[in-house]
Simulated scan of single mutants.
Amino acid sequence: MPRSKLKPQKSDEAPWYADGLRFECTQCGKCCSGEPGYVFIDDAETAAMARELQMTVDEFEQKFTRRVGRQSSLVEYPDGDCIFLEPKTRHCMVYKSRPIQCRTWPFWDSTLETAADWKETCEVCPGAGTGRLYSFDEIEVRRKEKSV
């Protein structure tokens, strides 16, 4: 997954996306596949996904998570796809309880740093740049939920 390189903005400078950005999730699964990375999850997210899959938290953790330092991350298939990206339909198997990191896509620090970063996001995500216009405030709420 992309890593953030966000540089602090001067307080009097409006971000390049101040007029808002368009996004409409197509549930294509492209944001859940590709290069290996991490989807860090907390205890509440783990419990919610376990509930959705009708598993105990212990069963869920043993089957679907790995330790990365002090944090837990979802495991991946060998090709880098998320373990919950259903291979045939390319849909998320835990969409209703997906982690914050997934719910806030594509409004991540790493996709919003520059207009060029957003353009790259639009090239790989068919929903980025189309659909509903999110206001600057809506984008900021999502961006600040989790630093990615």
Rank of each mutant, 00 (worst) to 15 (best):
T56C: 02
F84C: 04
F84V: 04
V68F: 08
Q62N: 07
K88P: 11
Y77Q: 14
F64Y: 07
V68H: 12
Y95W: 03
D79N: 15
F64P: 00
T65V: 00
E86Q: 09
S97A: 08
L53N: 03
C82E: 12
T89H: 03
Q54K: 15
E76L: 09
P78T: 14
L85H: 06
P78M: 13
Y77R: 15
F84H: 07
F60C: 05
Q71Y: 12
D79P: 14
T89A: 09
M93L: 04
Y77N: 14
P78V: 12
H91I: 05
K96W: 04
S97E: 04
R66I: 10
Y77W: 11
G69R: 11
D81N: 14
R90M: 12
D79C: 15
D79Y: 09
K88Y: 09
H91C: 11
C92Q: 05
T65K: 03
E86G: 08
Y95I: 02
Q62D: 07
D79H: 15
C92V: 07
M55G: 02
S97Y: 07
S97R: 04
V94A: 01
R70A: 14
P87V: 14
E59P: 09
S72I: 09
S72Q: 13
R90F: 05
S73I: 13
I83L: 06
V75K: 14
M55W: 01
F64H: 08
S97P: 04
M55C: 03
P78K: 10
H91R: 13
E59A: 11
T56E: 06
Q62M: 03
V68Q: 12
R90I: 02
S97L: 00
Q71P: 08
V68C: 10
S72C: 10
R90K: 09
R66E: 07
P78N: 12
Q62V: 03
S97D: 03
P78A: 15
C82F: 04
P87T: 14
T56I: 00
F84K: 01
V57T: 06
K96N: 09
E76A: 07
L74I: 01
Q71D: 10
F84L: 01
V68S: 10
G69A: 09
L74P: 07
K88A: 14
Y77G: 10
P87L: 13
Y77L: 10
D58R: 03
Q62S: 00
K96H: 01
Q54P: 10
V94S: 00
R70Q: 12
C82A: 07
R98C: 00
